[in-house]
């Protein structure tokens, strides 16, 4: 039986899974004068300068894409993000930092990737014995350190991927942005280019769907 015994992590902190929702690993780079100059020159036709812009923002885009798509597709999607950004450079108004604008493109490109996957009915993986063991070990973790170690395992990433695969591309995109990355609903709506109400409703539904999935991951619930 799965252990629900005392858990060293302060249970008061549990509601904080939806914690302060600003993920420090996704910093927003302040717009720089040299970057503005670079953009101006590219728009005036010096397209070779676009390579400098890619160099400036590539790590940021890889970080976003690397968390959202399978590892063997990261390079392809990052490439698509920068090509899309170039094609739409005329629409960048400089009212927001360039990397914020680029983040929106990266997120929408990843969303398109999952929409395409859904259209082609790519088979969804199922939980293995190892995953069920990971769930049991996570629930029975006796200390904060043990819990963190569990969260850093490959099995954890696979269980998360399994759960995300069960969601629609729309719910997946919103859940990733709001609950995993920690963006506010308003920021998520801006990045996806969707209405606030749409994102709010989807965030609620997506989290409920995730919770339902996790609720039924008990090995006995399947039997």
């Amino acid at each position: 039986m799965m252990s629900h015994v005392a858990f060293a992590v302060d249970m008061q902190a549990l509601p904080g899974w939806h914690r302060s929702m600003t993920d420090d690993s996704l910093p927003v780079v302040k717009p720089r004068q040299d970057e503005r100059e670079l953009l101006r020159r590219i728009r005036q036709g010096e397209i070779e300068r676009y390579a400098d812009l890619i160099d400036l923002h590539q790590r940021h885009v890889i970080r976003i894409v690397g968390r959202r798509v399978p590892s063997d597709r990261v390079a392809e999607i990052v490439h698509d993000v920068f090509v899309r950004a170039y094609v739409n450079l005329g629409q960048f108004s400089e009212s927001v930092p360039f990397d914020h604008w680029l983040t929106g493109i990266a997120i929408r490109t990843c969303y398109d990737f999952w929409r395409d996957q859904a259209r082609h009915a790519v088979p969804v993986s199922s939980l293995t014995e190892e995953h069920h063991r990971w769930i049991e070990q996570t629930l029975s973790a006796q200390s904060d350190a043990q819990f963190r170690r569990q969260a850093e395992t490959r099995d954890a990433a696979e269980v998360l991927e399994w759960a995300l695969q069960q969601l629609s591309p729309e719910n997946r995109a919103v859940l990733t942005l709001v609950h995993l990355d920690g963006y506010s609903v308003r920021e998520a709506a801006q990045l996806l280019g969707w209405t606030l109400v749409n994102v709010k409703v989807r965030a609620h539904r997506a989290r409920r769907a995730l919770r339902n999935l996790l609720r039924h991951t008990s090995p006995r619930s399947a039997s």
């Binding site: 858990f7 549990l14 590539q58 990052v78 090509v83 969260a151 954890a156 919770r211 996790l214």
Partner: peptide, 30 residues
Amino acid sequence: DVHKLERALVDSYRSRSGASYEVDVTQQVM
């Protein structure tokens, strides 16, 4: 339990920095 699992999955997601990818798309994009 569901709450704990959610937290573990969020931690798992955030521990993936994505920085480990040795990707350089500059040449192809250009």
